[in-house]
């Protein structure tokens, strides 16, 4: 064994040195790097999962947006249709009302005209009576002839009654 260079003390020193080396190398070099690797693996996994999640969320949001848009479009159409119906109704109502009012106005105007004609006629009769009275007075004052007087009165009355 001596020819190979086996030496107890050398063996012990190198054994202990190697054990210390394994310990120190793990503590200061290999261990920290392994934890860096593990952390990176973990973070990559997490990032991938997060990306997947975001993608799903994005898709969901897009669908929701589309839905909302469709809903809005539908509502808008509905509102336009309703507005059209309402405006048509309003126009029709307004036309009716206008027609009704016009008729009323006409009727009222006709009534007023009729009343005024009546009133004018009454007034005229009154004036005619007054005229006849004043004419009679003039005649009476000029010619106190009862016969003529009576004839005149009768004539005036006949005229007035017309």
């Amino acid at each position: 064994m001596g020819a190979l260079g086996l030496d107890l003390w050398g063996f012990i020193v190198q054994l202990i040195a190697f054990m210390i080396f394994v310990f120190l190398f793990w503590k200061f070099a290999l261990g920290p790097i392994t934890s860096v690797l593990d952390k990176r693996t973990e973070s990559v996994k997490e990032s991938l999962a997060a990306a997947e999640r975001m993608k799903a969320e994005l898709a969901a949001t897009a669908t929701r947006n589309e839905e909302i848009l469709n809903e809005a479009r539908r509502e808008a159409q509905q509102i336009v249709a309703q507005a059209k119906v309402a405006s048509d109704a309003t126009i029709a109502r307004a036309q009716e009302a206008a027609a009704a009012q016009a008729g009323e106005y006409q009727a009222r105007a006709e009534a007023t005209i009729r009343q005024e004609v009546e009133q004018a006629r009454l007034q005229l009769r009154q004036e005619v009576a007054d005229l006849s009275v004043s004419a009679a007075e003039k005649i009476v004052r000029k010619n106190l002839d009862p016969a003529a007087q009576a004839a005149l009165i009768a004539e005036a009355l006949a005229q007035a009654s017309n």
Binding site: G10, V13, Q14, A17, F21, L24, F25, F28, A29, L30, G31, P32, I33, V36, K39, R40, S43
Partner: peptide, 24 residues
């Protein structure tokens, strides 16, 4: 044995420094 100590020392120093300054 002398070379072994040098190798171990260098490995610990170099790889230890790399590990100490490890960045993501």
């Amino acid at each position: 044995m002398f070379t072994m100590f040098i190798v171990m020392g260098l490995l610990l120093l170099v790889f230890g420094l790399i590990a100490k300054n490890a960045k993501p």
